[in-house]
Write a protein that binds this DNA or RNA. Structure first.
Lengths: 320, 320
DNA sequence: TTGTATGCGTTATCAC
DNA sequence: GTGATAACGCATACAA
């Protein structure tokens, strides 16, 4: 990290640091001769400002920390992080990745190691287990996205109910009369599911069945398929796309027609949903809206931390 | 970014900065009384060292820059970046993301903005168009992964031929006699393909057909399907998994048996390949080996920049 | 138009 | 055991 410094340029141009900065920043108050000479020299020597020194002096930084699930594993987080990265870049910020620390001591270590570099930290899907007060002592600002509430911090919440409501209502309106919900006991999705039945007023009451699962992954979707089909359902909503993919695999093997015999809707808008056979109807996270809100917060944090909520959206494809 | 400083602690403990650092770093030469008092105070005031100042002083940093395809879009880059992130973290480094700049001026801007923060920059899949000499003037070290050669820099190359060779040889050894390669004119993959035919010695010469494509994406795989099947091939190798998925979609729609009627092998080891119907045989990048090599390089850069090469590997699943 | 001097927060040398 | 003090590279108030 050996760099050319202002001092060296000043020495080379036989002038002072002050004049060099003036010339480089194109401020006025420098004679034409000195200016051109300094600019030439700076270019020749390959001067690059040391941002660490600048930030130390200015007490600010354009690096933003991200704490969240491992990119690659969890593709929802990944897409959020990716979208945020794009928008950060457009605004002159750069993301620093911290992964998902195993415990809060490790988290604190990371935040300490970021002090002075990173002024704002974004938390994705982070559930604080025991000590939310730990954030009070740290020098950074914190923005929590889809995470458990921490007093005095900024929050961006995701309304899972809205998209599920629209998806399930779609199932009802297209004549499905026995709908399974397959997943864990997530309040948001459950609410959306139930609300759809409420807003669908019909003389004949459609049936709803809840089949609880634990991991909500591909394997579980596959293994639940038999039970789902045995229930006589003509539609199924999965809490995750991955689970839905497992069901699709089973249906493919047993040559079960989708959506003919049974309609399928997932949740997360996993990019593979466009590629699957059939293409998977799903519920999408408000990814872009979240990133935009984060940028706004970074640019200017409001006085009083508040919670903003963003709706999920139903996306219809072939499977429903 | 207002932080508690050593000065403040020193003032509070009625001592000097030097003694405070000694106590905090658990160096000897501090009386028990002062030490406990300082430690207590530092904890109470919530002292966190300013890493910008430390790095400025020490002229080093534990932030590593990553330049490469947008995470999320390109899942191969994504998985490489993810794996690298894990290993960086284990070694006390943090990745800073720069995305893929549209042109070299933007790239230079990014590298300038990182000066003093980021001492090593990893380039993934970066093709330098015109001015490789630009890297000479920058203060960082550069490691190029699967990228076009830049003089005086460290390179990690990917041998695409090895995995393709093994996959195609597998096709030949399992009795396939007419194999299509579908993709762009990539030298590595082509070599592997041809080498497999060379190393397969049989009296009856198997046929090989090359169908060129441009984008190598899902859509193209789908649209090429008809031509591939019309060629009478009993196996097909796609330059990318995404293209293979397009073919799988077509086959699913037309109820073509895979691998019964035609075997399919892709390239990239896209995670979706484990979930697809049928699960896709593919060629995997040497992701972990690359990350490990990068860590080694970061920890200690050798005197003379050299190029290391890593082999791709065939992964057999249901489709072949 | 130009230069001097100070401080950002840390580390580390050197003297007491 | 302790404490001045000088860097690291940059920005800027304040002379000259």
């Amino acid at each position: 990290m050996a760099q050319v410094t202002l001092k060296q340029i000043a020495k080379g141009a036989d002038t002072s640091i002050r004049t060099v900065t003036r010339a480089l920043k194109r401020q006025n108050g420098v004679s034409k001769i000195k200016r051109t000479e300094i600019l030439r020299l700076a270019n020749e020597m390959g001067y690059v400002p040391n941002i660490a020194a600048r930030n130390l002096r200015l007490r600010k930084s354009n690096f933003v920390g991200i704490i969240g699930g491992d990119i690659g594993r969890e593709s929802v987080f990944l897409r959020k992080a990716n979208d945020l990265q794009q928008k950060l870049k457009q605004n002159g910020y750069y993301p620093v990745l911290g992964g998902l620390p195993k415990n809060e001591d490790l988290l604190k270590d990371i935040l300490r190691e970021w002090a002075g570099f990173v002024s704002t930290v974004i938390f994705y899907n982070y559930s604080i287990s025991n000590s939310p007060e730990m954030f009070a002592g740290l020098p950074q600002h914190f923005i929590f996205v889809d995470a458990s509430p921490v007093a005095g911090c900024y929050h961006l919440d995701i309304n899972r109910a809205s998209g599920v409501h629209d998806g399930v209502l779609h199932l009802l309106q297209t004549g499905r009369r026995c709908i399974v919900r397959c997943g864990s006991v997530d309040v948001g999705r459950k609410d959306g599911f139930d609300q759809a039945f409420d807003s669908f007023s019909q003389s004949e009451k459609p049936r709803r069945i809840h089949l609880p699962t634990v991991k909500c992954n591909f394997k579980e979707g596959y293994s639940m398929a038999e039970k789902i089909l045995a229930s006589g359902a003509d539609a199924v909503f999965f809490d995750t796309d991955r689970m839905a993919f497992g069901f699709l695999k089973y249906a493919w093997e047993k040559r079960i027609e989708i959506p003919g015999q049974i309609a399928v809707i997932g949740f997360d808008d996993d990019p593979w949903g466009k590629l699957s056979c059939p293409a998977l109807s799903t519920v999408a996270h408000p990814i872009e809206e979240l990133s935009e809100a984060i940028i706004t917060l970074i640019e200017q944090l409001p006085e009083n931390p508040a919670t903003l909520t963003f709706d999920t959206k139903f996306i219809r494809r072939e499977s429903a």
